[in-house]
């Protein structure tokens, strides 16, 4: 059942091409989310269900929500209302909806035919990943926590000085 992999790969390539060709940032975000979903399907067919779930939850969930936050913050103003009217017409959903429907069809096919998975070497589940993560890679986990803390402090610092730029932004 190699066609599951190939169809998901085609959806990933098409949606990524639409991301870099899109004019509007929200359209690009929609296609980017579809691309991440298709990569998650590829992870699932490769026998890595844990990172498939992480791809959906963290990438398509948290990081894309950050992007949407920033885009919505930047669009505050009088022109945002007719922009909102243009966005809610519903036609821009057609492309991502078709691509996402292909992924849903694949998912239902795989769930309905349990014996039709890709013949992978072995399914590496969350237990093995966790044992490896907190065994030989423990230093990496600690360094990742330091990196996240540094990102948090940096984002807080940059976002705080953003609120009053008139006093400290005009020297240069």
């Amino acid at each position: 059942m190699n066609w599951v992999f190939h169809l998901a790969a085609a959806v990933a390539i098409v949606s990524t091409g639409m991301v870099i060709a899109a004019v509007d940032a929200v359209h690009a975000l929609l296609y980017l989310i579809v691309s991440l979903y298709s990569v998650a399907v590829i992870f699932f067919t490769l026998g890595a269900p844990f990172v498939a779930a992480l791809e959906v939850i963290v990438y398509a969930g948290a990081i894309m929500v950050l992007f949407i936050f920033v885009i919505m913050m930047l669009n505050l103003g009088p022109r945002s209302r007719d922009q909102e009217r243009r966005w809610s017409r519903g036609r821009l959903w057609i492309g991502p909806a078709i691509l996402a429907f292909l992924l849903v069809a694949e998912l239902t096919y795989v769930l309905a035919h349990p014996g039709s998975r890709l013949p992978v070497v072995a399914i590496v589940g969350p237990k093995q990943v966790g044992i490896a993560l907190f065994g030989p890679y423990l230093v990496g986990v600690e360094l990742a926590s330091l990196l996240l803390l540094a990102g948090l402090v940096g984002a807080y610092h940059l976002g705080r000085s953003w609120s009053r730029p008139e006093r400290n932004g005009e020297e240069s």
């Binding site: 992480l54 963290v58 990081i63 490896a132 953003w162």
Partner: peptide
């Protein structure tokens, strides 16, 4: 499982990078 561990590290790095990057965008 080493590939998935590396993917988790890349995910962490992407989250930190995008938070600082979007603060810089603002």
């Amino acid at each position: 499982p080493d590939g998935q561990v590396m993917f988790i590290f890349i995910l962490t790095m992407a989250a930190a990078e995008v938070s600082v990057g979007l603060a810089l965008v603002l």
